[in-house]
Write a protein that binds this DNA or RNA. Structure first.
Lengths: 348, 348
DNA sequence: GTTAGCACTCGGACATAAAGAGTGCTAACA
DNA sequence: TGTTAGCACTCTTTATGTCCGAGTGCTAAC
């Protein structure tokens, strides 16, 4: 059987229609909606042929046709034309991408965001494979008598750092020289190579001075400070709700997921809550989108003053007792772990 | 009406039953399952009273009773006993929390994870409000003739950094002094205070040396390198699928969300894909959990060599054309933005 | 005050029927 | 020979009716 011009036209129309409506498309619909110049009966014949060729499927006898995967493949390979983006879309994309040029990760994150916004699908973006990235710069920063921050900068501009707790007090000058010698050793090596290398010692001398550099740096410094003011919100187990019978209703599940998806709003709500163990049930959460939920939050303390929150959200039907116990145990553990006084202590 | 001992017992039994079964509970069930020492008829009377008191509801005439929010409130305030955690649970919690003691953020993230695992609900954890946190240490690190990394460390141990692009070449020594003077100025100030402050200049002298410090630092250095090898995966718009008719089926929606929830597996899958624009449709994705999905990925390049990926996942029914256009435009933009040769160039 | 008994109510499951959409075949037409 | 019209047939969806079980509420007896 030949895949002639008309068959292709019909197939394309079916794909186009199905992609927008998600409903199996019938011959009559097709002849009415798209100007194919032939009657529904003719289209039926063509459709039948296309089905024989494996390009269409039939959910059941009296349903319309649905494109098969083979049809999509054909469409993608041969028939598809590029859609030209609208100027607004281009502006939007270029604009958003330009926001954080200095930071690769941020840019990639923005890309995922843009993509999902435009396509209305789930989108993702992955940072580059760092295998090929080489080291550029290593530094060891004295923070504390026993704390050092290790910082590594790669050629691509990726910055990574980690706070280190030293076993004993260390010599600041030694630290400085060590970092120089490490940079000297690792510079230009890929991360993988660096992992197999051992350190070589070397020396260098410092000098000092100062100029109007401050004016250049202050805006960014301020911006960084502001970033640090933000709190992070980690969310886990969102899909757990699918196992609850009350969320068998797709509408409810959707509402729930969307409520949690609005991280800023949710974070705000958490921040505004009182400290200590707090349980709010159903309507007590003024929020309309939470009226069928209970929210349990508790606060933990870092060095006695700063507080963070953690908790649980679920249907009003929940194991309050068990859950509050877990939460209290968790907050206690965290508060203890971050007591300034503490060495590493306690239980088994 | 009096809320006597027996009424409380009945209410507690109802709450207990409903919390585990999610089904309205009737008088007969109650008298059989729980040893209340009275007949179903008596329980019915008590239930009727409890309903009058607003503690139970009645979805419809011939259904069992459901605890009202007021009942939960009563339960939480007065009747609830603490559940003692099992030793295994305690071990698990303490163990996981101890994994990354040095890093507050990681610990909090773990907390959310634990909580969700134990409660089978959606859990969250928020890092502390940084309002009270004070600055401890500021450094400016020369990376490039025109690139500096600004690093800020707070009293709580939070580390934040940002790569800065300078307008002109700068003096390294000046940079060093500036960072000292900034530390001097801002140390001990809260973040909010610091935002209102202006910088004061001051001097300090450096010396040099070196010792066996290296041995202390190497393990952490290696670990940090390994961390940097990991790629990040950003996911956006996951709830978009709820707007698609094919995901009106709760089972499918669940499978989809769970597949994406497994970030490591998904990342792996992405890494293993070929470079360039790649479209896989339905069964072409060998993965069972993706057999009804199409996956479109494309690669972008950083400085011509390193590659990252981004793309879209959705039902086989998707706007291939439009989407590939968006993706190509995105990858081009990213690749251009991170060309080493480039100043800031091009389009409007 | 407690219990047993019984009529009544309501939702869910199931079967049946009717409507609607679409196909497939045949025969007529250009 | 390709195209079209017509019609019987199929299958899904929706509405309707019936039955069953779970549960209540009331009354009368203990």
């Amino acid at each position: 059987m030949d895949l002639n011009e008309r068959k292709l036209k019909v197939l394309q129309a079916i794909i186009r229609d199905f992609v927008t409506t998600a409903e199996p498309v019938g011959s009559r619909t097709l002849s009415k909606k798209y100007d194919l110049g032939v009657s529904a009966a003719t289209i039926r014949n063509e459709m039948s042929d296309l089905e024989d060729m494996g390009l269409l499927t039939h959910p059941h006898t009296s349903a319309g046709r649905v494109p098969s995967e083979k049809a999509y493949r054909l469409y993608v390979n041969e028939m598809m034309k590029k859609t030209e983006l609208s100027p607004e879309q281009k502006d939007m994309i270029a604009g958003k991408l330009r926001e954080n040029v200095a930071e690769l990760d941020k840019t990639i994150e923005h890309a995922a965001n843009i993509l999902s916004e435009i396509t209305n699908l789930t989108a993702f973006a992955m940072t580059p494979n760092q295998d090929q990235d080489t080291l550029k710069f290593i530094d060891l920063l004295p923070v504390d008598k026993r704390t050092v921050v290790l910082m590594i900068v790669s050629e691509s501009g990726k910055v990574s750092n980690q706070a280190l707790r030293m076993k004993s007090e260390y010599d600041e000058d030694a630290l400085r020289i060590l970092s120089k010698s490490m940079t000297y050793t690792y510079k230009g090596k890929t991360l993988s190579e660096a992992l197999t290398l051992d350190i070589i010692k070397s020396f260098h001398t410092d000098i000092e001075a100062m100029n109007k550099l401050a004016q250049d740096i202050m805006p960014d410094f301020m911006k960084t400070l502001e970033d640090m003011l933000n709190v992070n919100l980690y969310m886990e187990g969102m899909t757990n709700i699918f196992n609850l019978p009350e969320y068998n209703d797709i509408e409810r599940a959707k509402m729930f997921m969307e409520m949690l998806g609005k991280k800023e709003a949710f974070t705000k709500k958490l921040i505004s809550r009182d400290d200590g163990l707090l349980i709010t049930i159903g309507d007590e959460n003024k929020d309309e989108s939470m009226k069928d939920c209970s929210l349990i939050t508790a606060t933990y303390h870092i060095d006695g003053k700063m507080v963070g929150k953690l908790g649980v959200i679920g249907p009003t039907r929940m194991r309050y007792s068990e859950i509050t116990s877990v939460i209290e145990y968790l907050t206690d553990n965290i508060s203890n772990a971050f007591k300034l006084t503490g060495g590493n202590d306690d239980e088994d």
